Simulated scan of single mutants.
Amino acid sequence: MSTPTTKLSVNLNKIALIRNSREGSYPDLVHHGEICLEAGADGLTVHPRPDQRHIRPGDVFDLGALVAERPGIEFNIEGNPHAAPLGNYPGFMELVRQARPHQCTLVPDSNDQLTSDHGFDLRQSADALRPLVEELHDLGIRVSLFMDPDLEQIERAQALGADRIELYTGPYAAAHKAHSSELETLLDDYRAATQHARKIGLGVNAGHDLNLDNLGEFLRIPGIDEVSIGHALTVDALSLGLAPAVKAYLDLCRHKTRR
């Protein structure tokens, strides 16, 4: 029996960051999104923040329109659901209401965080998230919650009505890079979290600091539906080219190569 493949959603934030370092729209985000999709990516991800350090509201709509032209391709918007309006940023939930992505990944990051670095503690966050999850479902949007590999928290995500979780893989990536003795224990934790999530009816995504060196080993865990990768893929594109970088990640997601 063949091993199920994992879908690849390319996060375009870092390409937007390069564009924002100068005036104008170079590199063009939609063009690079097209390159990713032509190379075989299963979807595109954006993480708009109020400071618009990378993705801007207009990018969300432009990329949403690009994906809408391609049946079977998914658009994923991730971010802090409580992010309020700022300037021409309409607030996270309002942006999602207007853009109607296939999937919305809710992330517990604050406006001043450099990047997402932990999952939700649903003992504290569930009451505030519940009406937002319900609203997203009413809009026909799949809901994923950014989570640590904690079985109790994953059960709370299921009780809250999430469709999927996205496992925060930063600790795994750090341990892999350091050749840490904790690596196998961490992999066991992610494996147990994935198995438990699927047992109780949740889909499982994963993301953060996954790259060509560590992705293959992580995907030996069965049952990962999707990975969202941006920073490392953009860095690899500097030497490989964007389309070959996407294809290299796809080979790992499709279990054609191991690293």
Score class of each variant (00 low, 15 high):
residue 3 T to E: 10
residue 30 V to T: 15
residue 239 S to V: 13
residue 246 V to Q: 00
residue 254 R to S: 01
residue 259 R to Q: 12
residue 114 L to H: 07
residue 235 V to F: 03
residue 48 P to V: 05
residue 258 R to M: 09
residue 223 G to V: 10
residue 50 P to C: 04
residue 27 P to N: 06
residue 143 V to Y: 06
residue 211 N to A: 09
residue 178 A to R: 15
residue 148 D to Q: 09
residue 255 H to G: 00
residue 82 H to P: 03
residue 144 S to G: 14
residue 259 R to E: 07
residue 101 P to H: 02
residue 112 D to G: 00
residue 25 S to V: 12
residue 102 H to Q: 15
residue 131 P to F: 12
residue 49 R to Q: 06
residue 124 Q to G: 00
residue 166 E to P: 00
residue 161 G to H: 06
residue 59 D to N: 02
residue 49 R to P: 15
residue 111 N to K: 12
residue 13 N to G: 12
residue 6 T to L: 08
residue 237 A to W: 12
residue 77 I to F: 01
residue 29 L to F: 06
residue 138 D to S: 15
residue 257 T to H: 01
residue 116 S to K: 04
residue 213 D to G: 05
residue 71 P to G: 06
residue 21 S to V: 07
residue 30 V to C: 11
residue 93 M to T: 10
residue 110 S to T: 14
residue 28 D to F: 09
residue 1 M to V: 11
residue 250 L to A: 01
residue 34 E to M: 09
residue 21 S to W: 14
residue 122 L to G: 06
residue 123 R to D: 15
residue 25 S to N: 15
residue 157 A to P: 13
residue 49 R to Y: 04
residue 238 L to C: 12
residue 241 G to H: 08
residue 152 E to V: 13
residue 208 H to Y: 10
residue 24 G to H: 14
residue 109 D to L: 08
residue 31 H to T: 14
residue 91 G to S: 04
residue 253 C to I: 05
residue 208 H to L: 06
residue 188 D to H: 14
residue 187 L to C: 07
residue 208 H to I: 11
residue 127 D to I: 01
residue 97 R to M: 01
residue 80 N to E: 04
residue 211 N to D: 15
residue 193 A to I: 13
residue 83 A to L: 05
residue 142 R to E: 15
residue 174 A to W: 03
residue 256 K to Y: 00
residue 149 P to T: 11
residue 1 M to S: 13
residue 12 L to K: 05
residue 27 P to K: 09
residue 222 P to G: 07
residue 245 A to I: 01
residue 184 E to H: 14
residue 124 Q to L: 15
residue 199 K to C: 04
residue 172 Y to L: 01
residue 256 K to S: 01
